[in-house]
């Protein structure tokens, strides 16, 4: 079910990470993502992993809850791993037909897996610890300078937060409409693609009608509460950078620095790891041969 995806779902808890300024968390997530792409080096991934584990521990989000959201991307991860295992050139370990498995391939696959996995976990921490409203507030504040180019920043932020509010409602609605039409004998599981597309009409039409009706209602309700666009509005939740935000900023800078230094300093590491893997494997083979003999 769509409901299982953790991305975009707020997990309520009292933690330092929850209380951080959303703008800082946005920038922080960006820095973390960039750090993953700066170097393709095991030691950098290890540093990132340590950093991530600390952040997760601080955020008080149950690991189980986080991993549940990963179900949807297992397939993507597998494809990536397979691709790198099969199509990386280098020192060959096994070879049959057109497939070559290389040490470099295995290492690459592992690193890619780590990169993608951490990318998704990292970005889901942002949405898990920040309410959608705070997130949009943060985005609005960060993009405020664009107002001089006549970008409707406030309106876009408002649209985003409303979309976030109504996604679960519309999902429930979809479920209800689907069940109602199945009860009327609608065939939604057909193998024939044409039948399936046709089968969507009885669901999409009521869903659109309902979405428009809700939009109309909501617009009225907002108007009734004196909503008049961004002009002259005050904010209930004003964002101030606090001591914890400055400390986090400092830590973030340290982290990025560490990644860069390690990345440059241990530039040759991937090759060494491959050699070590090769040595290790040869040693193991020799060892087992020795056992046999």
């Amino acid at each position: 079910m769509l409901k299982d995806i953790t991305l975009g779902q707020y997990y309520r808890a009292e933690s330092v990470i929850h209380r951080l300024d959303p703008r800082l968390k946005l920038v922080g997530s960006l820095v973390f993502m960039v750090s993953l792409f700066l170097f393709n080096n095991p030691i950098c991934y290890l540093t990132a992993a340590v950093f991530l584990v600390i952040v997760i521990a601080l955020s008080k989000i149950p690991v189980k809850f986080m991993l549940r959201g990963m179900k949807g991307i297992v397939f993507l991860l597998l494809i990536t791993v397979l691709y790198h295992v099969l199509f990386t050139t280098g020192t060959v370990i096994v070879e049959f037909w057109i497939i070559h498995i290389t040490y470099e391939g295995i290492l690459n696959a592992l690193m890619m897996f780590a990169r993608l996995f951490m990318l998704i976990v990292g970005s889901s921490i942002l949405t898990l610890t920040t309410t959608p409203t705070k997130l949009t507030d943060g985005l609005e504040s960060l993009f405020k300078p664009l107002k001089i180019f006549r970008v409707p920043v406030h309106e876009m932020a408002m649209m985003m937060s409303i979309a976030l509010r109504f996604i679960p409602i519309l999902m429930e609605e979809t479920d209800r409409i689907m069940k109602a039409q199945i009860a009327r004998g609608a065939d939604l599981g057909s193998k024939n693609i044409f039948v399936r597309v046709k089968g969507l009409v009885p669901i999409l039409v009521p869903l659109f009608v309902s979405a428009f009706r809700r939009a109309g209602d909501l617009a009225l309700a907002m108007e009734a509460r004196c909503y008049n666009g961004g002009e002259g509005r005050t904010k209930m939740k004003v964002m101030h950078l606090r001591l914890r935000d400055f400390i986090s900023m400092y830590i973030l800078a340290l982290y990025l620095g560490a990644i860069i230094v390690l990345g440059i300093f241990f530039k040759g590491l991937p090759a060494i790891v491959c050699e070590d893997m090769q040595c290790g494997l040869e040693f193991l083979i020799a060892f087992f041969k020795g056992l046999k003999g």
Binding site: A180, A183, V209
Partner: peptide, 17 residues
């Protein structure tokens, strides 16, 4: 089964298409 049991959901008017 469908010929046996019919079900009318809450606010069924929203399922017309």
């Amino acid at each position: 089964m469908r010929a046996g049991i019919g079900i009318v959901f809450q606010y069924p008017e929203y399922q017309l298409f």
